[in-house]
């Protein structure tokens, strides 16, 4: 195991994040605050409670997940796309590092950043409404695994993308809608008849539901199903990445 190689990539990526730390943190904090003003303040005053939780608090896990999805996809895809674009990828490809090690470096750094952003959002939300976390350890596990899964997904996007436009394509077109339809701001029980069943085909429902459970102890779907869904997604991403590296897909000509 070339642990120094992993650390070099990890530190390189973290340094890149540090250079843009300001933007990285300000954006989610402002976005969260806006969501609170709109959803928590304006709408929440009419809804009051969902599943016995104040609405303003209820949306916090969904908000965090929303940011984790987009941040993970953006950071991880950009992290690997940039060296492909500039050509600096040659060095990593010519180094004595295995595919797993490359992944640990790039995806590990992107996931670290996502988790940090998630925690910053949680802290920001706490300024608006006090939120107790029922299962803090599980909350961190969910946060970390979700970040990891979406960073892997982002990594794949970054390898697949042929241009900068394509980098934003999947997040914009697929993930954001699925998140909004995935119960980030409501419990899927609140949806009318066909939609609540259809929602069960949306993988993001399970992630948000499970994450919400770690906060409030209540969920739309069983927690074990959420965990299973998360692990399946994670393994799927790992499998695709493994295939990418084995075939050299878009990395080596």
């Amino acid at each position: 195991m070339n642990h120094r190689g992993i650390l070099a990539i990890y530190r390189f990526e973290m340094a890149r994040f540090r250079r843009t730390l300001w933007q990285s943190l300000v954006t989610p904090v402002i976005t969260t605050s806006l969501y609170f003003v709109v959803f928590g303040g304006a709408i929440g005053s009419r809804i009051s409670e969902v599943d016995g939780v104040a609405y303003a608090a209820f949306i916090v896990p969904g908000l965090i997940m929303l940011s984790i999805f987009t941040e993970s996809l953006n950071n991880a895809s950009f992290g690997i796309y940039l060296p492909r674009f500039t050509g600096t990828i040659y060095e990593v490809l010519s180094a004595p590092v295995s595919t797993v090690e490359i992944l640990l470096g790039y995806v590990g750094a992107a996931a670290t950043k996502s988790v940090l952003i998630g925690l910053v959002i949680l802290a920001t939300a706490n300024l608006f409404v006090s939120i107790g976390v029922r299962h803090p350890l599980w909350m961190l596990v969910f946060l970390a695994l979700t970040a990891l899964a979406f960073c892997l997904f982002g990594f794949i996007l970054g390898i697949w993308a042929k241009g900068f436009e394509q980098l934003n394509f999947i997040p914009m077109l697929v993930v954001t809608p699925l998140t909004f339809l995935g119960g980030a701001f409501y419990s899927i029980d609140m949806l009318p008849a066909p939609w609540n069943t259809l929602s069960l085909f949306n993988p993001i429902v399970y992630l948000i539901s499970g994450f919400r459970w770690t906060f409030f102890g209540t969920s739309d779907v069983g927690v074990h199903i959420s965990v299973a869904a998360l692990l399946v997604f994670l393994l799927l991403c790992v499998a695709v990445v493994a295939w990418v590296f084995r075939t050299g897909y878009r990395l080596k000509s």
Binding site: N2, R4, L7, A8, T86, G87, T88
Partner: peptide, 22 residues
Amino acid sequence: HTDMFETVWGTVRFSRGLFGRP
């Protein structure tokens, strides 16, 4: 093919680490 925002020192240190050297 070079990074843009890295410093010279940062980039050579990265290279050494990437190849597993202390």
